[in-house]
């Protein structure tokens, strides 16, 4: 799911004068923050992330890779480890709650969790990792799975910052 998020960040749209970058931060209470400095969600992006069928249709219709439809499809992989996922882009934020009916596609308007100023980015995704075993894997593997070779095929991202917000 980390690679899906990174791939989505690489597919995003960035301002001409921006150096595309992403931040991944793990906090000891099981919150995982993923952010990037893209231009921000469009209406089509919100639709794509809320409705996997629609994004599949868009993908097939456009018949090309790197379109916004992929944002919705890859994004759903976060629910492998997260029950609740917040999205923030520009000045708006909402969450998905997997434990409710249609919760993975039904957005609820809500405040984004607080993170330090230096981690704030224009578009952010926050995962609440429920199981302690999943938290342990994420905490330990974060810097191990993200090797330089993982980024060979990225086209836009020039920097990925990994932060652990815990006692270590």
């Amino acid at each position: 799911f980390l690679f899906e998020l990174i791939q989505n960040a690489d597919d995003n749209t960035y301002a001409d004068d921006a150096q595309p970058e992403a931040t991944i931060a793990y906090r000891s209470d099981g919150l995982l923050l993923f952010g990037c400095n893209e231009q921000g969600f469009s209406k089509a992006n919100v639709s794509a992330i809320c409705d996997i069928n629609q994004s599949t249709k868009t993908l097939l219709k456009q018949g090309k890779k790197g379109c916004i439809g992929e944002k919705g499809i890859g994004f759903k992989s976060v629910f492998k480890i997260a029950d609740k996922v917040w999205i923030a882009s520009n000045n708006f934020s909402f969450y998905f709650d997997k434990t409710t009916p249609l919760g993975m596609v039904d957005p609820v308007w809500a405040k984004f969790p607080d993170f330090p100023e230096q981690l704030q980015m224009n578009t952010m995704i926050c995962l609440k990792i429920e199981k302690q075993e999943d938290r342990d894997v994420v905490r330990e593997q974060l810097t191990k799975v993200l090797e330089p070779s993982s980024f060979m095929f990225l086209r836009r991202l020039t920097k990925v910052r990994v932060v652990r917000l815990d006692d270590f």
């Binding site: 469009s42 209406k43 919100v46 639709s47 520009n90 708006f92 249609l102 039904d106």
Partner: peptide
């Protein structure tokens, strides 16, 4: 880009389309 009001309205529409 999308404003807060536009996003709120769009999210309302999405929820309605899901029958929420």
């Amino acid at each position: 880009s999308l404003s807060v009001e536009e996003c709120q309205a769009h999210i309302r529409d999405i929820r309605h389309s899901h029958g929420a």
